[in-house]
Design a protein around this nucleic acid. Structure first.
Lengths: 130, 130
DNA sequence: TTAATTATGTTATATTATTACACAGCGTTA
DNA sequence: TAACGCTGTGTAATAATATAACATAATTAA
């Protein structure tokens, strides 16, 4: 049984904001939005973001430097993320594909490296933008 | 037959430097190193990097904001990259695994999105660091 | 040989992220 | 209960990453 994390005030404020958006948010846009709630400095935002990433509540879209909520309630997948990104409208969707996950989880390279995490980003054009 | 790109002076200088390193280099460390060759400004470095990424001579390691040379002479894989990253020593290796590439190339999500590119980063501990 | 495209050099600035310091709250444990 | 470790807070300063805007030159295509 995984310990249920209790979030602090700052962490809750920032998680709420990210969960309300279905698209990734950037750190400084988050900062702008939470100033009215008393969060004034970048570091306060980054600290909360780092924690939320760590516990799997949000994911970082590395190629965009932005953060999106994890829709998977179980959050075991914090360490195994797959996203699709539209290069035109920048729409980002988290992908859960059992077969793909299995394939990635089971992947072994020829160097004997032990993987505990991966991040996969697919790029293309979404239906609307084709 | 793919057109063989002719690189400009700046592009060559920067590609040379990156190819001499077997590990990813960061933009400002590149800038520092090429100052003696007359490249003085970040933008000159970023412009060359962007071009080299575009033509597949180098890849960006998104989670590290760093650039590594593509070892694959054919460079068709600029748009389909897989890396392993050691979270302890930060060693980065490009992975070419036929089965994995096939799987990723053929991946279809359930939203009808057309992918033309992907980037996969595996994280863990390399043999030395385990 | 004009026009379009791509690259250059430079200055300034925007964006993303961390260091450093002082201190507060909480649970453990001795 | 006092000392300790751990995690979080608030603030200021600054580091690291990346792009905008402008003028100009070189290269390629029509």
């Amino acid at each position: 049984m995984q310990k249920q994390e209790t979030l602090t005030k700052n962490q809750k404020i920032i998680l709420d904001l990210i969960e309300k958006s279905d698209q990734p948010l950037k750190a400084y846009s988050i900062l702008f939005d939470v100033k009215k709630k008393g969060i004034n400095a970048p570091l306060q935002v980054y600290r909360a973001l780092n924690k939320l990433v760590k516990i799997g509540k949000i994911h970082k879209i590395e190629s965009r430097n932005a953060f999106i909520a994890c829709k998977n309630s179980k959050c075991q997948i914090a360490k195994a993320t797959v996203f699709s990104i539209c290069e035109s409208c920048e729409d980002v969707t988290e992908i859960h594909d059992h077969k793909l996950s299995e394939h990635l989880r089971d992947f072994k390279d020829n160097k004997g490296m032990k993987y505990n995490k991966y991040n996969l980003e697919f790029f293309g054009l979404c239906k609307k933008c084709v």
